[in-house]
């Protein structure tokens, strides 16, 4: 499959060419699915993506890609498009074993030996509740040093925690929303799943705009 720009891709409504982004939702609402779609979009455009999964196995992360690629390619077998998969590498860490420095150490090894040079990264499972603002800022600096164009995090918010930032970014990220350029929030509303844009410094989408998700597949559907 050739790397072509799909102008109908709803993700492009976000115009996210250079960003540090955050996808938030309550547990089980599809944060990883969104991250994987963002990653696949980058991969289809010919970019290398590093998928960092904290607390999950490589197989689990891989199966997300297989499932979503199968959905977007109308059931075409992932094995038949291995070239796209060469644009992805999964790196997993234990919850207690992850730090910006460790990530930099492992990634530099790959970059310097010209094994894998990612331009995009998704970090799934980062513990915003446990880690300090300093740790996050340090991680952002590491990512900048590594020359990544796009980095997406996921974060779990809780129904019973009502703390919000001025922009409406829920806890535990309410005090670090300034670190991110883009913040998306998945919200169930009746039969639909909304993807609210809470913050967007660099995209063409104004804050407050929303995308919707297909609740059965968690694929991003359209802009409203």
């Amino acid at each position: 499959m050739e790397a072509t720009e799909n102008t109908e891709n709803p993700l492009h409504a976000l115009n996210i060419n250079q960003t540090m982004g955050l996808v938030m939702a309550r547990a089980g609402l599809g944060k990883t699915a969104i991250l994987v779609q963002l990653a696949l979009d980058c991969m289809l455009m010919g970019n290398k993506v590093l998928h960092v999964s904290i607390g999950e196995t490589v197989d689990k992360a891989k199966s997300w890609y297989d499932d979503i690629l199968s959905l977007v390619s109308d059931g075409e077998k992932v094995s038949q498009i291995p070239e796209i998969m060469r644009n992805r590498m999964i790196m997993t860490f234990k919850e207690t074993g992850f730090s910006g420095i460790k990530l930099e150490e492992r990634l530099r090894d790959l970059i310097e030996q010209d094994i894998f040079r990612p331009t995009c990264m998704v970090i799934d499972g980062y513990d915003f509740a446990a880690d300090s603002r300093e740790a996050l800022v340090e991680l952002r600096d590491v990512l900048n040093r590594l020359g990544l164009r796009q980095v997406w995090f996921s974060a779990v918010c809780h129904h019973d925690d009502q703390r919000r930032s001025a922009l409406g970014v829920p806890a535990p990220c309410h005090e670090v929303d300034d670190v991110f350029n883009t913040v998306l929030l998945i919200k169930p509303e009746g039969d639909t799943m909304r993807l609210d844009v809470l913050k967007s410094d660099v995209s063409g989408v104004r804050p407050g705009a929303l995308l919707t998700l297909d609740p059965s597949t968690m694929l991003i559907q359209k802009t409203v």
């Binding site: 196995t57 490589v58 590498m89 999964i90 997993t92 030996q113 894998f116």
Partner: peptide
């Protein structure tokens, strides 16, 4: 990873165990 690349391999991922 380099040795795998040289062998036409595709790296799926890496995980850290201590």
């Amino acid at each position: 990873m380099g040795s795998i690349n040289q062998r036409r391999g595709m790296i799926i991922g890496s995980s850290e165990e201590g």
